[in-house]
Design a protein around this nucleic acid. Structure first.
Length: 817
RNA sequence: GCGGACGUGGUGAAAUUGGUAGACACGCAGGAUUUAGGUUCCUGUGGCGCAAGUCAUGAGAGUUCAAGUCUCUCCGUCCGCACCA
């Protein structure tokens, strides 16, 4: 059956509009009206006010993509908008800012395709995002907004990079990068999807390039340890700890030719079980000793094969391959035994020392390798069945000389002590975290403010020359060598050395887009300052961010980078706190109705503009809060949204019943219950049940013939953070001439919320058999007497004797027979 | 493999932290109103049963007067990391 779109010659949508105006609230008019008023009054502008307690709420600023706002963005923004608005009503001086993380790939790709300068498309996108955000009525202080691509902003990003360089934390290093041979462009790891270029799909290869690196690993310990004092949700903490990957163990030196071959191990206690060693194919000793191997051709060819493989190929197969370095042996310093040495790609060059001692009896990977190459397996810890697989659990040491009889823990201590005493080992902590690759061979990013002089090496440009602005180019493609498009701006590239005044070349790579977002929360504190990135006064007042909400996908990127960056600034004395964020929460993704991700290619993207047009910003906001538990994924459902729309309409029409009358006791109870519940649930981020409480409260009022004004006003206050436009409108219609958003948050009274008649559950042997009404705080005897009057109870207890009675005051009575 | 989260009606989910399981919504059914059609309003709605009842929180055991909640075992789902020595 198809629906007719016409009725009486008129479009159905036209009818809809007419009726909406006549019968129920016209959200278009209301929302436009109040957005204009708030804007004109700069209602959300905030300044330092030392008489008031500050509250800094932060959401991750968006990348202004051409696609516009996604329905996922407002989930986070509305949540902290609700919190910010409530905090304001509770008397806090609230900073809730918004800006744009505006450097990035899509704008540059768009430029390559269309020739439109990234600055132009980005500006247009920011304009569109701003319009969309304003249409949703967020209480951002727009006077503090900026984009990371503003020269007044990236001046300070560059300045901070120079500080990193001066402290030795930024350095140049030759690194293999991901290279797309078709786009002729270097890709960041996150731009490589399944080993292929995200943009064109071509297979990505590795290419050695000189890269700027930032020594985040120097902060590895502090980045873990300082999590202790922070109120971050557990999954964020554990993911960061996991990513940093701290592991304690020892470094041990094995004799190898004239050299010492140092390995890292977490199990020094198993040293007597070492039956061979393995080097990463890239290990320097492989080339150094090549002439001494009996099988150099075989070794060389394995090295070459490994180099061709991408990281993905290398880790996809866990089948062990390798080549023995014939003609040379290593010596185990614990027992003087000679052992063979192999190269294999299961040993990674970037972790530890790029070499391992292999203990096949107690490490499954070594075990697998030993099986392939038929190597001896010596058990040194009792337990398991090593004819089947490696024994990785604890046990008593055997075949281990002075370690015999000890357990794992004691064995480790003793082994490390022994090694240090004899000068061939030491305790050592290793991390999985690598230094941060900070160069991108791109155009649309912050230029790295460094020049290279043959005589003086790498030099930062003088701070007085900041910002170092991006040069104009017309071709945004990199060249065949993989140089950034900036390399083509020869006039810009060729410069003089700030040190000796001689000829020098500018760095042509730009910063990754994680640079600008590493400190943006500091700039919000003092966004127009042109003397410093933010004044001490502003930082002292506003920092830390009290509550930061953002996506889980940034946990090991932006969130970790910015914590590091902030700690660095703290060490330099530029910021007053050692951590930037007191509290970190994370919202779940919003998926399409069928549980799939929303994406352009699937054609299931919901555009916030359409929802605002059809149902209004208030309904949209409230629905996003009602959709489900905030930290869990949620599925978009237009039908559910309808329910919220009906509720909002109900609140609107309730106004017709509002009169200046006194509240009954029951009214008072309902009101205070609502206040207490909504207040508590917002603080706990249980927005979905906060909305339920408001619905219950409204349902109560709907049943009344006359709604006391105080009840309705309280509803408006409670709902104002969620649906500010409607509440402000109804507030005005009640005759108030002040702004509700500047009003106060209601105070709930637990005593007034309580009923003096309570319902007891009556159980017999733990099974529900009925309920009884009792005055509050009745005695145990009174409750029991009343319970025994129930027909059902009498029947159940027939012929039985009550052995025990349990009464939970004001809750239940359990008769045990 | 390691780390984290989780498993409750037809659906999204609640449950005062051990105390009446399914709040609040969606959907559905019946009815009302209306301009045929709703994005309107009312009533009902976990399963089985005519009923008294009885069975129900992934499965199984345990602790307890009482378990969705605590303990153990197993099964399953999602997310992150992954040959990290």
């Amino acid at each position: 059956m198809t629906k007719s779109t016409h009725f009486n010659g008129k479009e159905w949508s036209e009818w809809q509009k007419d009726w909406a105006i006549e019968e129920r609230y016209n959200f278009h008019t209301i929302e436009e009206k109040w957005q204009k008023i708030w804007d004109e009054e700069k209602a959300y502008k905030v300044e330092i006010d030392k008489d008031k307690e500050k509250f800094y709420a932060l959401v991750e600023f968006p990348y202004p993509s051409g696609a516009g706002l996604h329905v996922g963005h407002p989930r986070s923004y509305t949540a902290l908008d609700v919190i910010s608005r409530k905090k304001r009503m509770q008397g806090f001086n609230v900073l809730y800012p918004m800006g744009f993380d505006a450097f990035g790939l899509p704008a540059e790709n768009y430029a390559i395709k269309t020739g439109v300068h990234p600055a132009v498309s980005t500006a247009a996108n920011i304009k569109n995002f701003t319009r969309q955000l304003k249409a949703l009525g967020f209480s951002f202080d727009w006077d503090r907004s900026f984009a990371t691509c503003d020269p007044e902003y990236y001046k300070w990003t560059q300045w901070m990079f120079i500080q990193l360089f001066k402290k030795g934390l930024a350095y140049k290093s030759k690194m293999a990068i991901n290279w797309c041979p078709s786009c002729k462009v270097g890709l960041a790891n996150e731009e490589v999807v399944n080993g292929c270029c995200e943009r064109c799909g071509a297979q990505v290869v590795r290419k050695d390039k000189e890269q700027w690196m930032v020594a985040i690993t120097k902060y590895a310990d502090r980045l873990i340890d300082d999590l202790n004092d922070l109120d971050f949700i557990d999954r964020v903490k554990s993911q960061q700890i996991n990513w940093i990957g701290r592991s304690e163990g020892a470094e041990l030196d094995f004799a190898f030719g004239e050299d010492k071959l140092t390995v890292f191990t977490t199990r020094p206690d198993t040293a007597f079980g070492v039956t061979y060693m393995v080097l990463a194919p890239e290990h320097p000793f492989v080339q150094k000793y090549m002439s001494r191997f009996e099988n150099p051709a075989e070794v060389q060819s394995y090295v070459k094969e490994t180099a061709k493989k991408s990281d993905l190929q290398r880790t996809q197969s866990t089948d062990k391959t390798g080549v023995e370095l014939k003609g040379i042996k290593a010596v185990n310093p614990f027992n003087g035994k000679e052992i063979p040495v192999f190269i294999s790609d299961y040993v990674l060059t970037g972790y530890g020392t790029g070499a391992i001692m292999a203990v096949p009896a107690h490490d499954q990977r070594d075990y697998d390798f030993a099986k392939v190459f038929n190597l001896p397996i010596i058990q040194v810890l009792a337990g398991g069945d090593i004819s089947e697989k490696a024994w990785e659990e604890d046990g008593e040491h055997i075949n281990s000389d002075f370690l015999n009889g000890l357990n794992k823990e004691d064995g480790m201590k003793k082994a490390i002590d022994y090694a240090s005493e004899h000068g061939f080992g030491r305790a050592k902590v290793n991390f999985k975290l690598r230094d941060w690759v900070f160069s991108r061979q791109r155009y649309w990013g912050e230029p790295i403010p460094m020049v290279y002089c043959e005589k003086c090496g790498w030099q930062p440009i003088p701070e007085s020359e900041l910002p170092l602005k991006l040069p104009e180019v017309t071709d945004f493609l990199p060249n065949d060598e993989g140089d950034s498009p900036l390399a083509k701006a020869t006039e810009w590239v060729n410069t003089t050395c700030p040190c000796c005044g001689g000829k020098a070349r500018r760095e042509t790579d730009v910063m990754p887009n994680w640079a600008g977002s590493s400190w943006y929360f500091l700039r919000y504190c003092d966004p127009h300052n042109d003397k410093e990135f933010a004044s001490k006064e502003a930082l002292d007042y506003w920092m830390n961010v009290d509550w930061y909400n953002g996506g889980m996908e940034h946990t090991t990127l932006h969130l970790l980078y910015s914590r590091f960056w902030h700690k660095f600034l703290y060490d330099c004395g530029f910021v007053p706190t050692k951590e930037p964020y007191n509290r970190r929460t994370s919202h779940g993704m919003i998926l399409a109705a069928n549980g799939e991700k929303m994406s352009k290619s699937r054609g299931n993207v919901v555009n916030p503009d359409d929802i605002v047009e059809a149902y209004g910003a208030d309904t949209f906001r409230l629905y996003e809060m009602f959709i489900g538990p905030f930290d869990q994924v949620a599925m978009w459902s237009e039908e559910s949204l309808m329910g919220v729309y009906r509720f909002v309409g109900k609140v609107y029409s309730l106004f017709a019943k509002v009169k200046q009358v006194d509240m009954t006791e029951a009214d008072t109870r309902a009101m205070h219950k609502a206040i207490l519940e909504v207040t508590e649930r917002i603080d706990q981020m249980k927005f979905n049940t906060a909305v339920s409480s408001m619905m219950t409260y409204v349902n109560y009022m709907s049943d009344l013939d006359v709604v006391p004004a105080e009840m309705y006003e309280t509803l408006l206050r409670l709902m104002c953070p969620f649906t500010p436009h409607l509440c402000e409108e109804m507030w005005a219609r009640l005759g108030h001439d002040d702004l509700l958003i500047k009003g106060s948050w209601p105070k709930g009274d637990a005593k007034l919320a309580e009923d003096n008649i309570v319902t007891y559950a009556v159980q017999i042997c733990g099974k529900m058999r009925g309920t009884i009404e009792m005055p509050k705080n009745a005695t145990k005897e009174e409750v029991q007497a009343k319970a025994l009057e129930l027909e059902n109870v009498k029947r159940q207890l027939e012929g039985k004797e009550i052995r025990k009675v349990i009464v939970v005051p004001n809750r239940l009575i359990n008769l045990v027979a």
